[in-house]
Amino acid sequence: MNWNAVETSFRLAMVTATILLFVGMPIAYWLTFSRLRWKFLLESVVALPLVLPPTVLGFYILVAMGPRSPFGQLYQTVVGHSLPFTFEGLVLASTLYSLPFAVQPLASAFAAVDVRLIEASWTLGVSPMGTFLRVILPRSFAGVITGMVLSFAHTLGEFGVVLMVGGNIEGVTRTISIDIYDEVQALNYHGAATTSLVLLVFSFVVLTLVYALNRKAWAAWPAMQR
């Protein structure tokens, strides 16, 4: 088993899940409470990674990060090196790829908070931000855990996006799934089987935990509209 790959995968999943927690919250909040007519547009964009082939997503991210795009050029000038085929590039791609897995549980948890509690908080003079921190978030604890665990597990298992954006650099961008692919290509079935089993068991344990915590974790996009 390639412990380097395991370490890279877990590091990537950890960083991605943490970023998604903070990025996902405002998006989920907006999706839950906005009354704008056009909010379905953002809903669709957030849900896109659920249906798009990872290679397609990876392709666009790669192009967007490339030295010819304004974003790629900006990054190059600021940081000094280009984004593709680096760990940071992988984090950015994973964040986009796992976005729905963080936003969906958060949004459904926010939507399940009794509106009366939110209104009570407002009439007691507490701002929307204060209300979020003191009422909505504490009442959405299960959703927050679910969102983090799901985005962690989903990042751990990603393949297509990583291959497109990160390549296959030992110790930097070679993740568990890519390692398994390599082993199979090299006809080393034994190595592939061990790593696969580890990933399978881990994923199963994670999902068991999520379901035990929150039965509605996978009800796709429920209760977004009130």
């Binding site: 009366r116 209104e119 009570a120």
Partner: peptide, 13 residues
């Protein structure tokens, strides 16, 4: 203002 809701809306947590 002070607003008393019909079901009181106390914060359960």
């Amino acid at each position: 203002i002070g607003y008393l809701f019909q079901d009181y809306a106390l914060f359960p947590h």
